[in-house]
Design a protein around this nucleic acid. Structure first.
Length: 289
DNA sequence: TGGCAGGGGTTGA
DNA sequence: TCAACCCCTGCC
């Protein structure tokens, strides 16, 4: 029997957190009411309990689980600060329990390279397909690990395309090669400002400004990274932009700093998930694409 | 069942 | 600044 850990997690909602577009390796199994995914490179099953989660899986510690879900952050204080903005206050109430995760660098980078013009469900399918085609198993019936940059770098681009990547296959293959051939260093990111770290990430093929900011926010703990995609443009334009002229990306960038300061990445996380799953559905004619 | 529109961007000219 | 890139999904 695999070991079962009890990890206190006040307020955490697995459903909100694992479907909010930060991570794409989780699947809910309704037959056992568990989320199946990966933490610290190990397959786990998560069961949501009252203010806690129970974790089934070999070789995963409670500390790794707490780290993954950022349970070490001072959430009550952070949420109090964020809730000074009325729209964020509504978002926090509506999707309470949403937490930011700490994804592994490479998987996060790969996910977001594959995300362009793709919806969350499709990115999940690509993640699953890359695992089953290029990952490895601990045991014959076990789940597949996420393939390393080296594995993908020395695979054929045509085989990557079979994972529903389309033109993104060339980007992912090139980025994997840059990393495998040590022409890119994760370590270099640590000492850089968020803006410079973004520029460094953009030396990877397939990584533009939006994707770089997603990687910094979801893998790099940079809570001041503010990814601007079509949904953020929609919500910022509707909720915060008061001028008559049409806003540009740079306007949203400045606005996010003025409104949310160093926590603007966390603000984006809550606003994005709330707007996409609740707010836009309440008025689909106005908001849905 | 088939045709069509559009989607969580990036690249290169 | 603006095609081009791929192809899957949802809708009619």
């Amino acid at each position: 029997m695999p070991s079962r850990l009890h990890v206190p997690a006040p307020g955490l909602s697995l459903a909100h957190t694992l479907t909010s577009g930060q991570t794409f390796c989780w699947q809910f199994d309704p037959s056992i009411l568990a989320w199946k995914g990966w933490i610290g490179g190990k397959p786990v099953q998560l069961f949501e309990k009252e203010n806690a989660i129970e974790v089934e899986g070999d070789g995963v510690s409670a500390a790794q689980v707490r780290h993954y879900f950022s349970l070490d952050l001072e959430w009550p204080a952070l949420q109090k600060t964020l809730a000074e903005d009325p729209h964020l206050a509504e978002a926090l109430r509506s999707v309470s329990g949403l937490r930011i995760v700490r994804e592994p660098w490479w998987e996060c980078t790969s996910n977001f390279i594959c995300s362009s013009l793709k919806q969350i469900v499709q990115i999940q399918q690509i993640n699953t397909s890359l695992r089953s085609s290029f990952g490895s198993q601990d045991k014959p019936t076990g789940p597949f690990s996420f393939p390393s940059p080296e594995i993908l770098a020395f695979s054929e681009e045509a085989d990557l395309r079979l994972c529903k990547l389309g033109y993104r296959a060339r980007h992912l293959h090139s980025a994997a090669r840059q990393i495998a051939e040590q022409r890119f260093s994760w370590d270099a990111l640590q000492s850089l400002s968020t803006e410079d770290a973004s520029a460094h990430l953009q030396t990877l093929r397939g990584v533009g400004e939006k994707v770089a900011r997603c990687i910094l926010l979801y893998a790099g703990e940079r809570h001041d990274a503010f990814p601007i995609d079509v949904w953020v443009e929609r919500l910022m334009g509707d909720l915060y932009w008061k001028k008559k002229r049409k806003p540009k990306a740079a306007d949203f960038d400045k606005l996010s700093t003025d409104l949310f300061g160093p926590h603007r990445g966390l603000a984006q996380l809550y606003l994005f998930h709330w707007f996409r799953t609740v707010k836009s559905k309440a008025d689909p004619k106005k908001f849905m694409p």
